[in-house]
Amino acid sequence: MAERRFEVSRLPGFASVAIAVFVLLYLPILTLVVFSFNSGPSVAVWEGWSLHWYADAWNNEAVKGATARSLIIATCASAIATTVATMAALGTTRRAAFGGQTFIYVVINQPLMVPEIVTAVALLILFGVVKQATGYQGLGYLILAHAAFCTPFAYLPIRARLEGMDLSLETAATDLYANPWQTFRHVTLPLLAPGIAAGAMLAFVISLDDVVITEFVKSGGQDTLPTYMLGQMRRAITPEVNAISTALLGLTVILLTLFFILTRKKN
């Protein structure tokens, strides 16, 4: 006879709702992915397997340009964000509390609190003035804007890693004749590296995904992949959009998996 017991943590109907939620969450995404391989022009009527929408996207000059721009912006912005976030995390953790620490924390995390549309409008106004004054129309504005809102995403995992790090390790290093720079170089940095990598990855993903701020800040002909796709919405949707989405999705999943592996071995 099977062992019967009273499952304290079971609540009636919860498991069914949860399973339904997972199905509903993934069904649209899977549909999107599947129809990127459709040979026909519809995103709802299946006509057979084909990779030609990927080929179309690949050969589309606009998509190529947008991809390159997305990658350049995400790389530069995440590099800047990770650098300043690492420094700030080192400055705000594991030292005697000093006046203004909360202020620093609030400023760095401000992009998480302010609605994107508000920041977007603010940057539209500011960069509009600067563009007119300097005549510079390049990608610099987008990189700067992305670097700013990516900073908290880089800062949080680095800070978490630092706070989880045993302070006595650095104490031990100074005890063993390491000067402050040697301590940083030989102890802090190697131990912090997974946190920095995780932060950089999140920043990269966040930059790659941004629509609203990019839409407001970009000059003419500076579409990134997301703003290009948003523009396509006005026209008839073809599986080309699905193909681009699937590629972006794949990249995100890979980066996130790496992120989880990096942050898991924390103890």
Partner: peptide
């Protein structure tokens, strides 16, 4: 002077030999 810490504070990213040689290297 050198300290033996209560929590040992061994460097997790270094080997036993590298830990022992750390002070001399510094």
């Amino acid at each position: 002077v050198n300290t033996v810490f209560q929590s040992y504070a061994l460097f997790p990213h270094l080997t036993v030999a590298e830990n022992i040689g750390f002070g001399l290297k510094m």
